[in-house]
Amino acid sequence: MADLSMTYPKERSETTTSRKSGWWSSYRSRLTPYLFIAPNLLLFSIFVFFPLLYAAYISVHQWSLIDAPEFNGVQNYTRLLSDGQFWQSLTNTVIYSAATVPTSLILGLFLAIGLNRKLAARTLLRSIYFLPVVVSSVATAVIAAWLFNDNYGIINALLKQAGVGPVAWLSSPRWALPSIILTTLWVRIGFCMVVYLAALQSISPSYYEAAVIDGATRPQQFRFVTWPLLRPTTFLLLILNVIYSFQVFDLIYVMTGGGPGFSTTMIVQYIYQAAFASSEMGYASAMGMVLFVLILLFTLIQWRINRRTEQFV
């Protein structure tokens, strides 16, 4: 991932095309890459692009799923502008991302650096930190709901023994979001750790040897060697984690259902509610389109910034 910007291999096509004569072989070698991507592209078109276009089509209709769609122009989009709950759920999503993304990255990096050293039971420790990554979202939600349960969850039981609480983890506006954030971190830290670990292992020791010769202290080594070399990894993890945060659904669906009040209603939650609880598929699709555009913009901007700063590193 040298960087996310497009660093493609040098031009090479002229050699492949001029090697053999005749229009057929030239045509064929031009065709080769398309043949390689064709199966994927076919499935993409059928199962991703077409449904997306269909959602765009639905977004200018009123549709309850069980009756016939009725064209209503940009009504869904204008309604969205004045829908306070839509903006609140978007704000919630931003808060949730701001709380989970940097924390998972920092903790993941810390763990990776620690577990990259020679330590007793290193493999076991790595496995334990990675373990939550392989737990499905359904199972995660089940475990979390069981641990955080106000009335018979173990966390409150332990707090009670310590003379604190009970805390209404999932049913007070103050604690519901933090509970969900903690659960999210449990899942994400391990993923960040593994990716950072891989990146650390591919840094050549000669960089550090050179730094030591220059008299760099440990923090300086991190500041001037490790961190800059991890930039592309950090960038990749940043993008991936933001995407995950914007897509969070199952966890909240099971743990709080978006409540109490709207304190844990995220954007996908709200879309789902509009689509299936209020039977307003058209409105839900319009929100989906807006969300898609927002994420796309975010990524493109990040991409640009990354490419620009890369040049100075």
Binding site: V48, F50, P51, A55, G288, F292
Partner: peptide
């Protein structure tokens, strides 16, 4: 490049947004 960005953006669509059209397909 356009195809590649297209592929990348597909990664970002929450499935709830397209689940009904996908079901129809």
């Amino acid at each position: 490049d356009i195809l590649f960005i297209g592929v990348l953006s597909a990664l970002m669509i929450p499935i709830q947004v397209i689940i009904v059209p996908l079901f129809l397909v």
